[in-house]
Design a protein around this nucleic acid. Sequence first.
DNA 1: AAAGAGTTTAGAATTATTCTAAATCCTTGT
DNA 2: ACAAGGATTTAGAATAATTCTAAACTCTTT
Lengths: 161, 161
Amino acid sequence: MNTPSENSATLTKRLIDSGLRPTAQREVVFKVILEKRDHPTADEIFARVKSQMPTISLATVYNCLETLVQCQLIRQVNLERAPTRYCPNLHQHAHFHDETTGQIHDIDLPIELVAQLHHVLPAGFIASSVELTFRGDAAGTAQPTVPADCAPTLNNPHGTN
Amino acid sequence: MNTPSENSATLTKRLIDSGLRPTAQREVVFKVILEKRDHPTADEIFARVKSQMPTISLATVYNCLETLVQCQLIRQVNLERAPTRYCPNLHQHAHFHDETTGQIHDIDLPIELVAQLHHVLPAGFIASSVELTFRGDAAGTAQPTVPADCAPTLNNPHGTN
DNA sequence: AAAGAGTTTAGAATTATTCTAAATCCTTGT
DNA sequence: ACAAGGATTTAGAATAATTCTAAACTCTTT
Ligand SMILES: [Mn+2]
Ligand SMILES: [Mn+2]
Ligand SMILES: [Zn+2]
Ligand SMILES: [Zn+2]
């Protein structure tokens, strides 16, 4: 959607505008989130980042994620009580949680539907944000993926991929 | 909305239909949730139940809550990563989280709006449930309530109510 | 180069929830 | 009534995602 160097420039600008520093850790965390729009968890991001920057710590990943969220470069996504996921899609969108594959899909929301949603609120209720989540089954998305992380399971007895 | 004895009868029926026993603990947990539709947490429910049944344990409250959810007598409500809340309103409804008071309000959803929500899904996506949450400010709901639980805070320095 | 703020880091702490295993309770068959 | 057996409750330990702490490090500014 944007070139890597454009994204990096945006990051730098946003950080400096907020009085924060554009560090290598913040760059790489942002980059891996943009690389694959699959709503990864902090742990997954940690794993991906470590391959490029083996010395980074999990605490730093959490710190960077918090910073990126505050700078509005990514969004947090919470489903039930599962670990928080992170989403680089800043457009108004809903999430579809495929219960069979575990995948999370972005669903575009027509702007007029969002307006309608606000109309269900009684007088005096002013919503600053709306969150819409579907749960169900998305056909075509094929085989249940073994989670990247991968403890041993019935169909993956050695915990490998 | 229903008399206490009707609710109790419903509970008993549902439990027995599921091969479970209608115990005093399940009764009292269900009762306190119905008494005040304020989306309490497990801890809050524990506190309320203890006044009627001082020997109940927190583990039992969690067990009962899980049972009641499975029997579809109450629903879980998760907001961000805050402790899970429980809701006895079984109608299709959205939640409005008032950020200034912390209160959670039920918002009725017109059935045709729910239908429209499903129409934003691409072909092949079948949603078994939809969840809609607003966050913002509800006017008129008056003073910020000190949480029932109550650690000491600036406007409640002794942690009492 | 020194100072100082901002950042990263490892590891400890927190906390809602789940798990474990023993005690208790209920139902059912005799 | 009694015993057996499963269901439930219970206290406490365990779990796990996240946050906190304090020391080390880095970058910018003087
Ligand atoms: Mn599928
Ligand atoms: Mn208000
Ligand atoms: Zn998304
Ligand atoms: Zn509700």
